[in-house]
Amino acid sequence: MSRPRLTFLESSLPYAVNAARLIVMDRGMFVADFFLATTVPFLMQFLIWSYLYQGSSISRSFGVLSLSQTLFYYAFSIAFGRLNNGYDVVSNLSLNVREGTLEPHLLRPVPYPLQKLADFMGGGVVYSVPIILVLAVFVFIPPVALNSFFWPGWVLLVVVSQILCFTLSWTVAMMSLWLVRTDFALSLLTTSAAFFGGELLPPYLWPEWLRPLMSYNPFRFMISAPAQAIVTMDGGFVMTALAWTSFYAIAFGCLSAFLWRQGMKRYRGAGG
């Protein structure tokens, strides 16, 4: 009797569960990572913006957000920057290619890119904890009106932003198949995410000539768009952001699929 064919979801679920379990097992690291990598950048922004909003500077308007909104914007975008971080996606593939250990993964029934997607989403479940913590403070401390139309859209935006993060990072990871050593691609990815993602400054505070780029680049929809949406509770913005995020996710998905096929044609497995 032949075994029943597993659905895609059933086959890829163990990858997601494993990734989540690995992070939970290493919870000491997760906590250290959270406290240092998430709170320190927030502390920096807190010190700057608390200073800017006090005293003589307060008469100047820094866009549309108040001090508390600005601080929540940074708390959310830094937490999203940590959730939607494609570093491992690129470094794992790069390491496998460099050490010539990709083959066992290619032999499995689930296509390798989908294994990595499941893996990434599984890890994301754990890395959403910091976002939930910020969300708890945001929702309960100054009471926020619970708009039933807003929340499903926002949750969907978060999920699609994760898919976009994966497809974009996977596209960058494809460089490993051509260049072997991709250390610079990794730092390019993390820096671009921090800079274009809006973790440093919200798009509307950049000089006029940079604003279109800062408002509509793909990193922005991975990191600061969900943050801006929740801080402003703007349903219209959620819809616009959702459209842009889906567009970029599909575009990078197609591009990475094409590059994967081309890359596999030239991959020899000898390492480098």
Binding site: M29, A32, D33, L36, A37, V40, P41, L43, Y87
Partner: peptide, 13 residues
């Protein structure tokens, strides 16, 4: 441990 990542984040200060 992602030490380098944590280090770079702290260095932002």
């Amino acid at each position: 441990l992602p030490t380098e990542f944590i280090f770079r984040q702290v260095m932002r200060l």
